[in-house]
Nucleic acid binder design. Structure first.
Lengths: 107, 107
DNA sequence: TCAATATATAGATACTTATCTATGTATCAA
DNA sequence: TTGATACATAGATAAGTATCTATATATTGA
């Protein structure tokens, strides 16, 4: 059975127009905060907040080099999340339905 | 380029532990509200709220038959959302990076 | 018709969060 | 050393939301 609570946390972190765009940016490769910021209208502290949310959720990693903070999409996230969505939307044996027999259907 | 605002709405509707479980339940097929409710501890009005959120987001459809409200996962959601996640996480030509040249990288 | 069942709606509350301004810290170039 | 740049943190505010109780509506069986 899927760990709903854990993935709900990840999906919450993705549930924002701006953070979705950040993830899309990072899907092309590593970027520093100041470059990411150029793609948005909000302020620098707001970006800092969004990046912390993405880090806490295990979506991106951060490495500091000199003045710049570089962000990278975690490969574990990419692969595991894709797999989760596949399992979630597929009628699988892992579905909660198959764990209990009370699951009735209309005719 | 991806429609972040539109998909953020869909992902917001998924960003809840309970609604994730509902989606997983419905991935096995159509179910009525009272059967779905058996899998949770919250009250019936709370389920009614969650189902409305999922409908508004275009994730499930609802059909009333007698006293029962049957919910079904929309096939359009299943296919389109999977495709969106694929495009989001892949370094593709649709990525915002390729739309503007200011996207620099570290060495 | 009446009672029970299935579901929706209204309104309230507590909690979360996206954003801002103000400010602090660290790094580097001159 | 000094000023500029990159980034984080603190604190405030406004908006959203998950949940509840109370109640309304609709359907069906007796």
């Amino acid at each position: 059975m899927l760990n709903y609570a854990a993935y709900a946390q990840v999906i919450k972190a993705m549930a924002d127009e701006n953070r979705l765009k950040i993830i899309d940016l990072l899907s092309c490769g590593t970027m520093c905060a100041c470059e990411i910021l150029k793609n948005f209208d909000f302020t620098q502290p707001t970006l800092s907040h969004h990046m912390k949310v993405l880090q806490t959720a295990g979506i991106v990693s951060a490495v500091k080099k000199g003045r710049w903070q570089y962000y990278t999409l975690l490969p574990e996230f990419t692969t595991e999340f894709s797999e989760f969505i596949k399992q979630l939307l597929r009628d699988s044996h892992e579905c909660v339905c198959h764990s209990d027999s009370s699951c009735s259907r209309p005719d």
